[in-house]
Design a protein around this nucleic acid. Structure first.
Lengths: 338, 338
DNA sequence: GTGAAAGCGCTAACAG
DNA sequence: CTGTTAGCGCTTTCAC
């Protein structure tokens, strides 16, 4: 390490200013100088020091992204989408996981801010506990929330329209003949958990079918398995279960089938997300697909417009999801016996 | 943004040097100054600028990590393990995905180097095409390869002992009564793909059982499904199939069962990795567990010892894996009929 | 069109 | 123990 622009300038027999200009191409230099500088840089293996440039320019060309967990396929999918979106913008992504802990989240935000990222995309792990750190960060740098968000209107947000998504799922199973439904979701620590439950409840209430008490645990396959077991133990199965994400749904289907029930024969199951788990399921999972690419594109676009500590009211952009009907929710008559 | 140490110093009525010393605590100051500086910093919301510090110190407190893909659960698991390992060392991780492309990989390495990371942990996507970029990076900064590696001995490496792992799997299925075996793996673009195939072949040859031609595709569930279909179509099933990773194995089990075969009744299946997919499988997958935590710890430890462009011979640390027997490889006699 | 020099924010000599 | 100052590598005025 260690060949600087001074070395290049000296080797080319010009001033550092000229070397800088030649290298960046942002200002005119004689072709001859351009040529000499280019060759010198090549021969010495010059590589500009991004740290020095960042200090000088007061901009790092990086944005930070914080997600609750990198083990959850939904978050890795959305991270990849953001990465693709940033691909050719010359902006790099600094990725951090909060490991579902508001404390770690706050620490990660601090170090990202200390490293002077130009912006922040975050999916806050906790709707309440994440508030101070997110608001504080938003005051210092452009910030947009993606997927999850904190309560109150303190920061911009892009995500899926959970309400609409759950309505899609509920209406679908009811159209398939379900007379009783239950929701299998997560404890209400995140905005997603809350909005999906309330979306479910509202949609179900509208139709007037019987609604069993919701099963609330984690966004995991393990919890899905357990929720299935609870349903089995309860002795009476609803006609349909609507899940807060695909992992729960996959676990649920597995444990229902293990318990001797047919899906969709005895009970219809619908997931949420559609990020890969769904087709892995056996039988393939009906689910509500989040428009991940659009969400990522919208988040990046919005980030470009947000200003730090902007006093204008925060925007909330909810993108409509789409129902994807596969096998777990086929009406019995039409369905392949599982 | 923008309260600097000068502002703090002025507010506290001391010099920047004293402010710096008080803040860092690395040198003695009078309690009174310490107190005044601390209060000023608190009131102004001072946050040190890591960019300036990095330029000054010629060290950033970050290490870069490049993995082939963040969608693959094995890589996210190992990333999390490295993160945990770095947790309290004050070192931050800059994570990048090469998306299985040597070109993108080279670009990511460039920007990581430009950002002056203090070290690099990489799982090179291609055993041949990744060579120049990895070697070049290793010349500039301490680097260790984790899991995958490039050919030749140009850079240190920590990973699992593939040879031993495959021997474990092969011996296990043969002990269970298998008289014919086949390997389902990936095309030979990565070291893992090559070593697992050769490990399989060596172990199988040693035992003298019949070995069918290997099935080589991708490290994905989809390829596993297809490989299963190919086996089915071939008309004659081997007694056991040993897979290069769990995703392939899960897909294979699914398609074998879909084709009316019993696992493990008609054919035993063993995976590789054991990072979560295995227990999701139905029936639970027998597999070879990679000691991910140890690998991560060892990689971080080794990185601390490596020097850039060190002329000493590169180290290769292969950690022994462990066989985890679940349901897909139970001997027929003992097995639960699937 | 080119070069000299200032300055981004910080820390570590170096004097006092 | 404290303050002044140089300098990390870069870009961009500001003069010429």
């Amino acid at each position: 390490m260690g060949v600087t622009i001074h070395d290049v300038a000296r080797a080319a027999g010009v001033s550092v200013a000229s070397a800088s200009r030649a290298l960046s191409g942002r200002r005119k230099v004689t072709p001859e100088i351009a040529e000499r500088v280019a060759r010198a840089a090549g021969e010495l293996g010059y590589q500009p020091n991004a740290v020095a440039k960042a200090l000088r320019d007061q901009t790092t060309g990086t944005i930070g992204m914080v997600v609750p967990g990198i083990g959850n396929p939904f978050f890795t999918t959305i991270v990849e989408a953001v990465e693709r979106e940033l691909q050719n913008s010359g902006t790099d992504l600094l990725l951090c996981s909060s490991q579902y802990s508001p404390e770690i989240e706050a620490r990660r935000l601090e170090t990202l801010l200390a490293r002077r990222v130009d912006g922040l995309i975050i999916s806050p792990c906790d709707i309440e506990a994440s508030v101070p750190a997110v608001l504080d960060a938003a005051r210092r740098v452009p910030l947009v929330q993606l997927d999850r968000h904190i309560e109150g209107g303190g920061a911009d947000w892009v995500g899926v329209d959970d309400e609409a998504g759950l309505a899609l799922a509920v209406d679908h199973v009811i159209a398939g003949g379900a007379r009783s439904v239950v929701f299998a979701g997560s404890r209400l620590v995140s905005s997603s958990a809350r909005l999906r439950l309330s979306g479910f409840e509202r949609a179900a209430a509208r139709t007037g079918v019987e609604v069993l008490p919701p099963l609330l645990g984690e966004f995991t396959l393990e919890w899905g398995v357990e929720a299935g077991r609870m349903l089995l133990d309860a002795g009476r199965l609803p006609d349909a279960v609507v899940c807060a994400n695909d992992e729960i749904a996959v676990g649920l289907v597995r444990s229902l089938r293990f318990g001797g029930k047919r899906v969709p024969g005895d009970v219809a199951v619908v997931g949420f997300d559609d990020v890969g788990h769904a087709t892995m399921c056996d039988p393939p999972l009906s689910t509500v697909r989040q428009p991940v690419e659009e969400m990522a594109a919208e988040a990046v676009r919005l980030l470009g417009q947000v200003k730090a500590g902007d006093p204008r009211p925060a925007q909330r952009i909810a993108i409509a999801p789409r129902l994807v009907v596969r096998q777990t929710s086929r009406p019995v008559a039409a369905g392949v016996a599982d």
